[in-house]
Nucleic acid binder design. Sequence first.
DNA 1: TTGAAAGCGCTAACAC
DNA 2: GTGTTAGCGCTTTCAA
Lengths: 332, 332
Amino acid sequence: MAAHVDLEKIAKMASVSRSTVSRVVNDQADVSPEVRQRVKKIIQETGFQPNLAARSLRNKQTDIIGLVICNTMVGLFTDPYFAQLNLSISQTCYKYNKTLALYLEGEPDTIFPRLTRRGLMDGILLQAGKMKDSLLKKMLKTDIPFVYLGRPTESGVSYVDIDNVTGAHLATSHLISMKHKRIAAICGDLDTTTGADRHEGYTLALREEGIPYQEELVGEGDFSEISGYQAMLQLLNSKPNAVFAANDMMARGAIRAIQEAGLSIPHDVAVVGFDDLPPAVSASPLLTTVRQPINQMGASAVEMLFDVIQHGSQPVRHTVLDVELIIRESSG
Amino acid sequence: MAAHVDLEKIAKMASVSRSTVSRVVNDQADVSPEVRQRVKKIIQETGFQPNLAARSLRNKQTDIIGLVICNTMVGLFTDPYFAQLNLSISQTCYKYNKTLALYLEGEPDTIFPRLTRRGLMDGILLQAGKMKDSLLKKMLKTDIPFVYLGRPTESGVSYVDIDNVTGAHLATSHLISMKHKRIAAICGDLDTTTGADRHEGYTLALREEGIPYQEELVGEGDFSEISGYQAMLQLLNSKPNAVFAANDMMARGAIRAIQEAGLSIPHDVAVVGFDDLPPAVSASPLLTTVRQPINQMGASAVEMLFDVIQHGSQPVRHTVLDVELIIRESSG
DNA sequence: TTGAAAGCGCTAACAC
DNA sequence: GTGTTAGCGCTTTCAA
């Protein structure tokens, strides 16, 4: 932030006032064409760009939004899901000429004061973590605009989520329709709404078809590949002939366990995942999975946040995005 | 950024001046114990935190640093390598109470003006991309503090890198020492210094042992799993009995291709990767690979940047981190 | 040890 | 259509 040209200097060079330069910079009306022309030329030549700290102070708006993924989820940050979400959020910020601040570290308690500082961020995207996280409740008590990524456990929260229950239902129904009898599930962390909702969808589909829910056919992982592998190892003892994994990474782990056991997919055990992430899907056998619109989720969340920033947090906004079953090889 | 308590308000409540409150907030000397006590109590009660835009304007320092990974690399952002690097950078910022701004999108040309705005960032971490990227050259012409992540193709650049040549050399030598004759390589994008350096290490190791370099044993991927798979498919025609892949993702793809061809690892074909990323390594067979200290790389880069910000870009700083060969199952 | 006052660079209300 | 001026909230001389 070295010494540099400022409005004043441009004004002198163009023999006009600071205000006029400001008007030109911000594309406001009421500047004569000749003057605008002259000032623009000088701005061009000098490469002048208004100082953002000064503008933020004056405008009470920084054009920075934060993305917060706190500790309880950080271990999973290496999941390609987050990379993709992050990318879409970043792209949307770029498109609207906003800056994205990233908060990956920190316990909900210690990170909170950093999120509530004045003069840094206009608003925040809060990635859902464990249901018991206190951060959401705390944020609700502030007047800071924020949007939740996932289904919140509190009311009065604006959020964007995907239809996890329907997705899991689709996946399970698909397996049922393939005449499989013993349909296992590898759940994600059930202390997250995502994990719980996908489990719910599985349960619902079974119930609709009058298939009893059997404990020994249900394992719990934490969305990681290795946890899917381990859960499947366990489930193999119960001889399932199909398995719904709550995300693609765990499905991939399950496939590995099934293949190592000398069983074939989908002949001996059919597999369906959830996410439709290219790296997980493209291995062989190609994964049948539930596609969720990650990019749209990121974009919607950012745009919803801009709306909250501009128009206030009332009324509360919800967007739940549709999912789609993509049938490939692993389900037969 | 709603109306809120400011220094002035605290000052009134404590019956002191703004200056005194500022001194207390910034832990400066020359405030009497009683006054300090009194002011602190009120700050505590009100939850006052100084406005960062105002502070930035005054101090000419924002305590924000940027991480820039531009378009040419963005497709690879889903590589767990970047997730891990990102995480370590984020953690280090957190530790030093700085904010991290993330720039994932944008052509080098269009992103440049956004990086050079005054009053936004104190400095920048620039992830290496394609060698021909013009961003590095442009940054060099500015007075903005920055540190390059990877080996730069220009001189006068402060950077942090890992010893890619030695790593690839270690991997290849290891395969040679196992008495393999036909040692293939799956290179990463050779238009990146990382890809080129790892190729260089492979070449060097062969030469040292008097093994001729054979074109038909060398494939090129782009660091993605699928590209490793495809490159291996091709290479299998040349009947290699070992292969060095320039990263773990490609190694994983190669393993898949080898196994699908009905060959066993390491018996028929030995495989060595590069990165030592848990998700890639933990599948079976466990991957022999070159471990690079990603977390240390992130931390070093951030700390180097702080140093550049504080003390100027001269002298130029370099840190090249050591790598280590981790022998597991896939190399026999 | 404390307070008064200037000013960081910008925008916008108001006056001309 | 253009300029003057008053701050935004903070830190920091400088004076008391």
